[in-house]
Simulated assay, not measured.
Amino acid sequence: MGMPEAPPREAGQAASPDFDTMHFRRTLSQFATGVTIITTRASGASVAAGAPPFIGITASSFNSVSLDPPLVLWSMATRANSLPMFRDGSHYIVNVLSASQLDLCKRFSTLKGDRFAGVEYRLSENGLPILGNALAWFECHNRSRYDEGDHVIFVGEVERCGVLDSHEPPLVFQNGTFSTTSPLED
């Protein structure tokens, strides 16, 4: 006796998932990612109300897309309060964190208020914060945005980038834990 046939569906249509959200999240957590802080300028209305002039968020969804043209991507939850500023802004900076910047990572993922208070940074050519001691940074034109599920995917065209001449290891997030990388022996 064979397996029962699956019900027919339209070509190009995905089947319903055979798992719940928690199983999906646990499975995704097995993929190690680098950790970044994405920074941009706050909108005029919030700054006028006395808010800090910049905003920043911790993100582990960063990835490269293309070398020519130079494109990168990252994503943000649609429920994030700062989504309108990233969606409507013309530029942002992706700051790649080192292992020694765990406190900064946590600050930008949890702290309410001015996340930049006391944080070392310099301004890019577009007047956006590049965090001090970031392993690398990418200044991006906000090229395109795609609404997908419960996130918005941002594709940035890199206008400028830099790398810190350091042997410091990167900050990595995997299976709900922060760590770093170590070379494997041959």
Rank of each mutant, 00 (worst) to 15 (best):
G56E: 01
I57V: 12
I57P: 01
I57T: 03
S60Y: 00
S60Q: 09
S60A: 07
S61M: 03
S66C: 14
L67I: 11
L67R: 06
D68K: 10
D68V: 10
P69K: 09
P70T: 08
P70I: 06
P70F: 12
L71P: 01
L71Y: 08
L71A: 01
V72S: 01
W74S: 02
S75F: 02
S75R: 00
M76Y: 02
T78E: 13
T78W: 05
T78N: 14
R79Q: 13
A80N: 09
N81M: 13
S82W: 02
M85F: 14
M85Y: 14
M85H: 15
F86H: 09
R87K: 14
R87E: 14
D88M: 07
G89L: 15
G89V: 10
S90C: 12
S90K: 13
H91I: 09
H91S: 14
H91Y: 15
H91M: 04
H91K: 04
Y92H: 13
I93P: 00
V94P: 03
V94W: 10
N95C: 09
N95W: 00
N95A: 07
V96W: 05
L97S: 01
S98D: 06
A99M: 05
S100P: 00
D103N: 08
D103E: 13
D103R: 05
L104F: 05
L104S: 07
L104A: 10
C105Q: 02
C105D: 00
K106Y: 10
K106G: 12
R107K: 12
F108G: 02
S109R: 11
S109D: 06
T110Y: 14
L111A: 15
L111F: 12
L111C: 14
K112D: 10
K112P: 02
G113H: 08
D114T: 04
D114L: 08
R115N: 02
F116Y: 06
F116R: 08
A117H: 12
A117P: 00
V119T: 05
E120W: 04
Y121R: 06
Y121L: 07
R122C: 11
R122M: 11
S124L: 04
